[in-house]
């Protein structure tokens, strides 16, 4: 066997072993590794200020659409009946700022850590705060506008450090995975500002993700799936995108409440 071939074998064995070494358990008898907090084990960095770029569904998101305009929302007959009871006098009511509708609002987000196990998402539109907890919520949590949100990091299934796990060109990129958030215990709210309803039985599944555009802009994307056995025929799926802004950027808090 030639020296070149031996070196090639050795190099490849080292390479193939690397992912397993990286995830190896500590030697028997050694101290167990300290459990990492959600903050320490973050798959991506979502913190900072982000502004909604409303270039989709503009006339349903930026302004209040007319009564009965629920195009593209898979409402069932009961959902349409309830939507048709909305009146313009209710415009601006806090029901429009519940978790299942909030991320579609023309808003800025401030995302920060509240301790090591909860991500806090604040909006200036409607002045709402969502708490995305990495700890299980109490089964008896009361229903509320923002409900109870359970967060978990989801990582790619390929071996850590394996080929192709390339960072997305900057800190906090997508290579590490994304955030999945499941929200229940919601009080009734609206999917759109004109009273398109979701019920207290609705659940919201969201995927928070990040990417970097070729011009260097950083983006936060939220894919949201609303399930509601009371008012929807099928899942309602939307994706909203937010551009990163410098700290201290525009922030225009306005409380919700019918005008």
């Amino acid at each position: 066997m030639t020296a070149v071939a031996l070196r090639a074998v050795a190099a490849l064995l080292v390479l193939t072993a690397a992912p397993f070494v990286a995830t190896a358990q500590p030697p028997p008898g050694g101290p167990p590794p300290a459990p990492q907090t959600a903050r320490q084990s973050a798959a991506l960095d979502l913190t900072g200020q982000w502004v909604a770029i409303v270039n989709e569904d503009w006339r349903w998101r930026m302004v209040t659409p007319p009564k009965g305009d629920y195009a593209s929302v898979p409402l069932n007959a009961e959902g349409r009946r309830v939507a048709d009871t909305w009146e313009p006098a209710k415009d601006g009511a806090c029901e429009a700022y519940g978790a299942a509708g909030l991320m579609r609002m023309p808003t800025r987000l401030r995302v920060s850590w509240d301790g090591d196990e909860t991500l806090k998402v604040e909006t200036d539109a409607g002045q709402q705060t969502r708490m995305l907890s990495f700890k299980p919520a109490a089964a008896t949590a009361p229903h509320s506008l923002q409900g109870a949100s359970r967060a978990e990091w989801v990582r790619p299934q390929a071996a850590p450090g394996g080929p192709g796990l390339v960072a997305a060109g900057g800190g906090g990129g997508r290579a590490g995975g994304y955030l999945k958030v499941t929200t229940t215990n919601l009080s009734p709210g609206w999917l759109r500002r004109n009273g398109v309803p979701y019920s207290e039985n609705a659940s919201l599944t969201e995927y928070f993700d990040r990417f970097k555009a070729p011009n260097g802009d950083e983006w936060l994307m939220v894919t949201a799936i609303v399930d509601d056995p009371i008012y929807l025929n099928t899942r309602f799926v939307t994706s909203s995108h937010f551009k990163r802004e410098p700290a201290g950027g525009k922030w225009n808090p306005k409380p919700c409440g019918a005008q």
């Binding site: 770029i53 270039n55 989709e56 997508r174 994304y178 999945k180 995927y207 993700d209 990417f211 555009a213 070729p214 011009n215 802009d217 983006w219 994307m221 894919t223 799936i225 799926v237 939307t238 994706s239 909203s240 995108h241 551009k243």
Partner: peptide
């Protein structure tokens, strides 16, 4: 970009055009 979340696929397009756009047009749909 193609982001898959279970049975949902979110497609992101970032279109740049020095002739007709003032900044990249970013769209997402499922």
């Amino acid at each position: 970009r193609f982001h898959r979340y279970g049975d949902v696929l979110t497609h992101v397009s970032i279109v740049s055009d020095p002739v007709y756009l003032t900044e990249p047009l970013v769209k997402t749909n499922g």
